[in-house]
Amino acid sequence: MAYEPPTHSVERSMRATLGVKVVAGIDEVGRGAWAGPVTVCAAVTGLRRPPEGLTDSKLLTVKRRTALAATLAGWVTDHALGHASPEEIDDLGMTVALRLAALRALEGLSVRPDAVILDGKYDYLGGPWRVRTVIKGDQSCVPVAAASVIAKVHRDAMMGELGLEHSAFGFAENAGYPSPVHRAALEELGPTPHHRLSWAYLDALPRWRHLKKVRGTAEQAEQLGLDLGPVF
C-alpha cells in the first residue's frame, strides 16, 4: 500500500517563524505495553530528501521497517535513544516517564536542537524547549517518521532479547504488548521483573493481583526531588 510521503513543511515553518536551525523529531514506542521500557528516539535530519518508503513505523512490515532503520542510521544527521524503565513508569507515571525518556534521548544528541517536533496532540516534554506538537507527525514529518522507525526497531530488538530469558511470554512477537500468549503466561507464571506493576492487567489476574502498585504521578515525582529540568 502506498502512503503519502512525509515532508519537511513543519521544519520549514519553524525555521521561518522561530528563526531556528536545528530541529529534532521525537517519537515514542512502548507506551501501551504491559512489559518493557518506554523508548523515545530524537532524530535530526536536516532538509534532505528522505529514503524511499519512510512513514510511520506501524504502517510498515517488520522486514521493511528493519531494513529502513538500517538505512536511516546512516542517513540521519544525528539521533539518540532514551528509555524509562518499567519501575520508573510505575513510580513516576507515564507522562513523567515519557519526559524522562525524551530528555535522555535529547541529551544523547551531539548538538542541542533549537526546537522539537513532538508526535501527537500533547506536549509531554515542556519547557524550556520550543515544542511543536503534530498529530500523526510520524506520518507527515520527516524527522518524526525517522524517529518512529528507529525507536520501534530498537525496542523490538530489546524485547526480543528479553524473550530469550522469558520465552513463555512471546516478547519476540508481541514486544511486551497484550496478546493471548502474553496473557496466558501471566496467568500461569505471574509478572517478570520487566513488567509494569501499576498496569490494569493485574486486576484480571487474581493469583497475582497482590503485586499491583499504585501508579505514580508528576506530583510524586516532584516530591521525590526528581530533576526533570534542562539536560544541556
Rank of each mutant, 00 (worst) to 15 (best):
A2V: 12
P5S: 13
T7I: 10
T7W: 01
H8P: 00
H8S: 04
S9K: 14
S9G: 09
V22W: 10
I26R: 08
D27N: 11
E28Q: 07
V29F: 00
G32T: 06
G32F: 03
W34G: 02
G36N: 01
C41Q: 04
C41F: 05
A42G: 09
A43Y: 01
T45D: 05
L47K: 11
R48G: 14
R49T: 15
P50F: 03
P50V: 04
E52C: 05
G53Q: 10
L54W: 02
L54I: 11
T55W: 08
D56F: 03
L59P: 03
R65M: 00
T66N: 11
A67H: 05
A67T: 08
L72G: 00
W75P: 08
V76A: 00
T77D: 14
A80R: 06
L81E: 03
G82N: 03
S85D: 06
E88N: 05
I89K: 01
D91H: 04
D91E: 12
L92R: 07
T95A: 15
R99Q: 13
L100P: 03
A102W: 12
L106A: 09
E107C: 10
R112P: 11
V116E: 00
I117E: 02
I117C: 07
L118H: 02
K121W: 07
K121D: 12
G127R: 15
P128A: 10
W129T: 08
W129G: 04
V144E: 02
V144H: 01
A146H: 00
A151T: 05
V153W: 00
H154D: 13
R155N: 04
D156E: 02
G160R: 09
G160P: 02
E161A: 14
G163I: 03
G163R: 07
L164V: 10
E165A: 13
H166S: 06
N174P: 04
Y177H: 08
H182W: 11
A184C: 08
A185W: 06
L186F: 04
E188G: 06
L189G: 10
S198E: 05
L205A: 09
L205C: 10
L205Q: 12
P206W: 05
P206T: 10
R207V: 11
R207C: 05
W208L: 07
R209G: 08
K213Q: 14
A218W: 08
Q220E: 14
E222Q: 12
E222M: 09
L224V: 05
L224D: 06
L226C: 06
